[in-house]
């Protein structure tokens, strides 16, 4: 290279062959994403990032957590969030930064000590930024997971009214402490709101009952009883009955029924309702 300027730092290294470096970079990244994001989009994202990176390095050196690179960091956060939402892997996200190192390697060919030092300094900055992307990626993923968990929690615990004074909670899915807590609170609140004296917890949709789940159910039943309502557990499948006995769980004086229909019948009888089948209606 003829136009050797001294001293060459990371900024010069990046800007000397600007067009070629960015083109190489974009090629590598677009290649790794296998067409799942359009080339034009990658092009736009990376050029913006490139600009912010050069600007940041020129202003404030290589402190990746510093003020000068905040623009680059914001762009990277945005990029990582998008990648995480679209279902890319963490490596596919980090490569967006790391591929720049690869694109800069040709600049090292002329064996200049300055270039090597500059490259190493830049490599450190890029490594940091790559870590930053992975962090942002993970954070987004965690946000997605926790919002899904909250949605699931909301969706899966409806309290339904079966009759005047009889309410039921059909439980679906695995029970854990947090969910049982929500179920318990909703059920008890519904008892107050509807003035119901009979509650049914239906566990037909619960795949497995272990000691902890049983413990939670017992607590709910006792709490309902403290408030002056009777609570029946229904929908115990044969395998689950076997497991409960094998685990040695005592349900004590809590009423359990095999099906929701049996539980409803029991609840109606306890609240003084008689069901009479009309004559002539064949069943």
């Amino acid at each position: 290279m003829a136009k050797q300027v001294s001293p060459r730092g990371p900024v010069e290294l990046l800007t000397t062959d600007r067009e070629k470096v960015t083109a190489d970079w974009i090629d590598t990244v677009a290649g790794s994403l296998q067409g799942r994001i359009s080339r034009a989009e990658v092009d736009r994202e990376l050029r913006e990032l490139y600009g912010a990176l050069v600007e940041g390095l020129r202003e404030g050196g290589d402190d990746t957590r510093g003020e000068s690179l905040s623009e680059a960091r914001a762009l990277l956060t945005e990029l990582s969030r998008n990648r995480a939402r679209q279902g890319f892997t963490p490596s596919e996200t980090a490569i967006s930064v790391l591929a720049l190192k690869q694109a800069l390697e040709p600049a090292l060919r002329n064996d200049s000590a300055d270039d090597t030092t500059a490259y190493l300094r830049l490599a450190r900055v890029l490594d940091d930024l790559a870590l930053f992307t992975v962090e942002a990626y993970t954070r987004t993923r965690e946000e997605i997971i926790s919002s899904q968990a909250a949605q699931l929690m909301e969706l899966s615990t409806p309290v339904v009214k079966l009759w005047n004074g009889v309410i039921a909670v059909p439980l679906v899915g695995t029970l854990d402490s947090a969910r049982t807590q929500v179920v318990m609170e909703k059920l008890l609140q519904a008892l107050v709101d509807t003035g119901s004296e009979q509650a049914i917890i239906d566990i037909t949709g619960v795949p497995a009952v272990d000691t902890q789940v049983a413990q939670h159910l017992l607590k709910t039943v006792v709490a309902a009883r403290l408030m002056g309502a009777e609570c029946t557990v229904s929908g115990i499948r044969p395998q689950i009955a076997q497991t409960i006995v094998a685990l040695g769980i005592e349900f004590g004086d809590i009423i359990t029924k095999a099906t929701l229909a049996d539980a409803l019948q029991h609840a109606l009888r306890a609240s003084g309702v008689d069901l009479v089948a009309h004559q002539g209606v064949g069943r």
């Binding site: 609170e185 008892l191 003035g195 607590k219 709490a223 403290l226 408030m227 002056g228």
Partner: peptide, 24 residues
Amino acid sequence: MRPAVAITLVELGLSLGGVRTALD
């Protein structure tokens, strides 16, 4: 008894056996 109170009593391990309860 309010729901929160009932939950607290259960967590404290007090099931108030021998006391009858009603909603209102």
